[in-house]
Write a protein that binds this DNA or RNA. Sequence first.
DNA 1: CGGAATGTTGATATGCCTCAACTAAAGTGG
DNA 2: CCACTTTAGTTGAGGCATATCAACATTCCG
Lengths: 243, 243
Amino acid sequence: MAPSDVLLRKLRYHSPIDPADVAAIRRLRCEMRELTPGEDFVSQGDKPKAAAVVIEGILARYHTLGSGARQYLALHYPGDWPDAQGLFLQHMDHSVCAIGRALVCSISHDQLMKIFVERPTIAFAVWRETLIDAAIFRESITNNSGRHGVARIAHFFCEQFYRAKFVGFAEDNACPLPLTQTELGETLGMSLVSINRHLQTLRQTKAADHRAGKLTVRSWSKLASLGEFDPGYLHQIVPASRG
Amino acid sequence: MAPSDVLLRKLRYHSPIDPADVAAIRRLRCEMRELTPGEDFVSQGDKPKAAAVVIEGILARYHTLGSGARQYLALHYPGDWPDAQGLFLQHMDHSVCAIGRALVCSISHDQLMKIFVERPTIAFAVWRETLIDAAIFRESITNNSGRHGVARIAHFFCEQFYRAKFVGFAEDNACPLPLTQTELGETLGMSLVSINRHLQTLRQTKAADHRAGKLTVRSWSKLASLGEFDPGYLHQIVPASRG
DNA sequence: CGGAATGTTGATATGCCTCAACTAAAGTGG
DNA sequence: CCACTTTAGTTGAGGCATATCAACATTCCG
């Protein structure tokens, strides 16, 4: 799929894009870049001059704490704009790295600002993207602060599986989720050991199975009720649900 | 201060607003509404037709968990747009309530969309507002997930004091923070009892004192280092610091 | 003045973290 | 191709931070 198609598919999930918008988006010149597993794409403090769209693979945003520990903030799938904030904020307050191999396309701020002024619909669609991002962050606050143990992991798994489905990453009841247990811990604010034990619980209760970077949902209804998952905050059109 | 002045002061902290923009903003018609302490301004599920700017007092956003418990997500001071997401997202994924008495002015989405198309600078300034919001959410993920005990509270106090200074809420070394200990717990993902004990630690170490809805910073440097506070994520111009 | 909300304290329970050892899998170089 | 190293996952034990429960003190407000 061409970069602009990945971008358009995502925007169309929530925003009306007319043919003239499509044409304008297809005229954007973008620079492709392949990222190796774990590679930083942008670092805290950077002042990017372009904004990236994920084309293939998964990217992650993270903070680095005083101790050097990492706090992952969100995962990003194809069509996502992991550093859109750079368009309007002076510096990056967090870093963005690749989880596994990934492909991104960078579009210069200059081009984007121009298209935003000429075609406000496109600006509003990207703005909407950033607002959905914010909704996902809010949900993470609630998940990491208000839910314990298995529920926290279950909710996270639901979100990732749900989002993966939209971008065609999910086959039936499984999707890639190439995080180690350590990284899951750094995402969910738990220790590696706790993650390991809760994952075993999820396996034993036949709710979900995470192994070798792959999430298998054994029972969506179990997982969703464990994690109190309600996808409203993702503000997407709902795909077929599963039982 | 007139509503448009509150709005303009905030936008100017981070965005260039020219005289024509100012004139356009002053022409916006807005509906003032006074909120009683604790009153919900917007509720989860609502589909607002206007966006509000805080004029006086403090508002808070919160999620309601399955158990009925509340998770506060962020506080909002004069000039903030607590429900700007309503401009582009179909429904509210969280609620907004008043903390103490508050005054808000609502501007219809119709007027805002019109001004955004005519004067993109204003759209970009409000977009920037929402991106700063998102940065604050990210920091909350990190704070609530990655910091423990006193550090978590200290960081939260630093942020609130810092933001309060910008809107003229802070007198020298104190600012209003009219949250009960229960509400602090619901913000920081801790129990009331833990909050109470950590607050005592902060008092005893002469870092900060929270009493009767007022935060007194006894030693900014102690508090900031305890909470690993770096205000970069607020993306504001830095006011005078204190020792 | 009385009742409700808020704050404080102590005791106990428990979930999670840390440490540590070990297994399994994957990747590397001879 | 196999020994070696590294990384990821698993398990057990012990300790600590935080939650929970419960009583009481204090402040606020009608």
